[in-house]
Design a protein around this nucleic acid. Structure first.
Lengths: 186, 186
DNA sequence: CTTCTAATGCAACACAAAGTTGCAATGGAT
DNA sequence: ATCCATTGCAACTTTGTGTTGCATTAGAAG
């Protein structure tokens, strides 16, 4: 039987490289990383990287996509308001962390990432909207027209403030967003 | 009297260069422009650019700041709702244009721009909030707690969808944001 | 009109980082 | 034990940033 051709050392090295990319991005806080740095951190020769990833951009892109597959846990506190607050706070964690900021800025510059955005965010919103649908089933609130849209509108101000306006994203600010969503549900 | 030392050809050339930077950014849709391109477009030698702007980053930064000083007209239709709609539509124009997208993505990568963000957006929101305060004075609506914050919350979903989520920003979507703001005022 | 000087042009350079190439070394499968 | 794909290594090309020395030129002042 053909046992997976050509992956003798390959697979593990791939992961080491992509992991190193994320590490370097996290450490430097920017996507403008050097391939040599990645090679050093991964403990791998530069040539090996270029054999697997044709260009630096593709290397970074692949690492980001791999990272994006990380599953976000969906909270279930029993209370809709608490679930939404938990989601909003997780979003704040991401958009204020150096790695998160770097990754989010990526979609602006990469046309390839731009194509994947709708699907990516659609999936995220759908998952988060699950807490709303759960509350609807338990009779905690009335069924909204478009749960995913409500989530989008809740997190939008958090993203906007983090990426553009600047200034702190306080607990009060987060509660304001949760309140607005709760109001739309009652 | 000392007649402005050292600006014989200087001033006009500065503007030609900065204008060329914007042109190249607009044409390429990215901030990753080449100094040689700018020199060619401006009809100026590369050395001249480097004499006025120490680094490429500073060149781009200066051009962006100059561009940012562009005054946005504040609408006055007589109706608060129409004013807000006009503002929201102007925001959509900016965030969906290649130049606007490129400029907005800048703040993510430049620490210097990051410092200026709060002041910049504060000013923009204050100007836009004027339409609310005008409506308050005319008795069209009740006085809100923080008009600038309301504007921020109105435009946040537009920015978020343009920069991250992707997908179209329809008139319906814009009206939804205006409606939400109007509801907060009544 | 002449002169003086700062601003510009020009060409050659140093440097950094991306990406390439040919060959040697090596580790795992059979 | 053998084989071959994977990796390491070193030298190279290319592109773009930023610098330097010197020649030109535009314009201000006399």
């Amino acid at each position: 039987m053909a046992t997976e051709p050509s992956h003798r050392r390959g697979k593990a090295v791939d992961e080491k490289i992509l992991g190193a990319v994320i590490d370097v991005i996290e450490a430097s806080g920017t996507l403008a990383i050097k391939v040599d740095q990645v090679a050093a951190v991964a403990g791998v020769n530069k040539t090996t990287i270029y054999r697997k990833f044709p260009t630096r951009d593709e290397l970074v892109l692949t690492a980001i996509l791999a990272q994006a597959e990380t599953v976000i846990p969906i909270p279930d506190t029993g209370s809709l308001r608490d679930d939404l607050t938990a989601i909003a706070r997780m979003v704040r964690e991401v958009v204020t962390s150096p790695l998160g900021r770097a990754l989010l800025s990526a979609s602006a510059e990469s046309p390839q990432l731009a194509e994947l955005r709708p699907e990516y965010w659609g999936a995220r919103f759908a998952v988060a909207a699950e807490v709303i649908e759960r509350a609807v089933r338990s009779g905690e609130c009335k069924p909204p027209e478009d749960p995913a849209l409500l989530i989008e509108l809740m997190v939008a101000p958090i993203h906007f403030r983090a990426s553009q306006v600047g200034g702190e994203i306080t607990d009060t600010f987060i509660e304001l967003q949760v309140d607005r969503l709760m109001q739309a549900l009652t």
